[in-house]
Amino acid sequence: MTADRVREVTAAQHRKTRPARPPRAGVRLARLYAASRRIPAAVAAIAACAIGLRIALAGHWDSYGALQLPLVFEAGAAAAITVTTASPHGDPERVAGRWLPFLRLAAALALTAAAASALAAAGTGAHLAGGTLDALRNVAGMTGIGLLCAAALGGGLAWAGPTGYLVLGAYGLYTQWHGPALTTPWIWPARPPHDLGAAICAGLVFTLGIAAITVRGARDPAGE
């Protein structure tokens, strides 16, 4: 066996025997990250939106109201997700290793999935206008807007994105009754749930938002 081969084998054995990162450390880090971002409060806010939607759907609404109502709760859930991007720790956290982008990505994806699931569940069997597909598209799209807002303005102002888009979406729905109707797919709440263009636009915004928040994180005005 040549010296190079010995080195290769030793290196391979070293790689095999090197102790893996104990899972508890990862879980602990995720738990501390979640606490510092007030993720439990965001989960509670998402649950409150789902409960609110369920209660609201018990009422009798005309078509216009039935379409706008879910949008309010979807925007609320998206705003709750996006404000969790605000970091209280600033520079020391940003320069402390490689885990932060993964934590940001995991938190945003998990919360978006939780919000879409909770709102879809709240609408099950209760005449949710647009159905599950509509809820998923709207939550993902508005969350994407909020995440982009966080990357540009800071986590503390991330709620402004979904809230502003709620106004635009509600106006888009309003124009369906009082023309001329807005038909651009970028105002996806005004499009039917199976509209491919609207789904692509919402998906694109969500993907961009997730990418921005994973790579850059929320803007930290104090650290600029």
Binding site: P88, D91, G223
Partner: peptide, 30 residues
């Protein structure tokens, strides 16, 4: 690194705060 204005999550204990940074800095878990 200690910046001039250190931000912190007020709900952390002293040990949790320091532990969070130790884990982020990829210290061996043990």
């Amino acid at each position: 690194y200690l910046p001039q204005n250190l931000g912190y999550y007020p709900g952390f204990t002293v040990a949790e705060f320091v532990e969070y940074f130790a884990l982020l800095k990829e210290m061996p878990a043990a």
